[in-house]
Amino acid sequence: MNMSTLATPQVITLQIDGQDVSARADESILDVARENGIDIPTMCHLDGLDPVGACRLCLIEIEGTPKLLPACMTYAEEGMRVLTDSPRLQKYRRTILELIFAERNHVCSVCVSNGHCELQNMAVKLGVSHVTVAYRYPKMEVDSSHDRFRLDHNRCILCTRCVRVCDAVEGAHTKDVMGRGVLSAIIHDLNEPWGDSDTCTSCGKCVHVCPTGALVEKGTASSEMAKRTQFLPYLTRMREHHS
């Protein structure tokens, strides 16, 4: 891909899983695949937010490219031959999901998002019924200082959807990531309790883009926290119309 093809979108054809499809050159493989009914698993991706390619679940194989590339950030090119569901990819995806489960304390059965959790659904979809890697069992805090919302680090998978929606859609940039490696954590402002944040507008967007029970509305009991992410594409589209 180069800049000139990005600047002037043209219609191109490519092959995904043996199926001939057409696409605009500024479209990601993920978008093209989904338009054509080919499902690629994603976790950090959310329509309406800039992709980051961090969860690695949407990795695809492209003929002639040795590296696996994230479908959310790889753009369609003429003549590309893409595989989205090879046995190798399936295996890697399952391992990655296991790594996510093992990283923190996802006690689904008592979680307020039980039954409405994208991570749980992904486990079902990918056939991950158990975890073979070691659990970390980290000691993690629950930040319950905000008036209406709660951040439970135990359930956070560091997809950074909340960080991105806060920054790019709400414009507050209250949330960010601190620390390195497995010690990374979502923080508010300069690592203050959420309730002490001066920049948080309490809009709740972060709560509803969160795929798990990490960000929830207070007062919800087990299994009650269903998320609504539909607002995001609408919001993005309406803003485009007005600008």
Binding site: V52, G53, A54, C55, R56, T95, I96, L99, I100, A102, E103, R136, I157, L158, V177, G179, R180, G181, V182, L183, S184
Partner: peptide, 12 residues
């Protein structure tokens, strides 16, 4: 300890 923590395979 030097993993940036962004992607799952490296972080975990």
């Amino acid at each position: 300890s030097e993993s940036c923590g962004k992607c799952v395979p490296c972080r975990v």
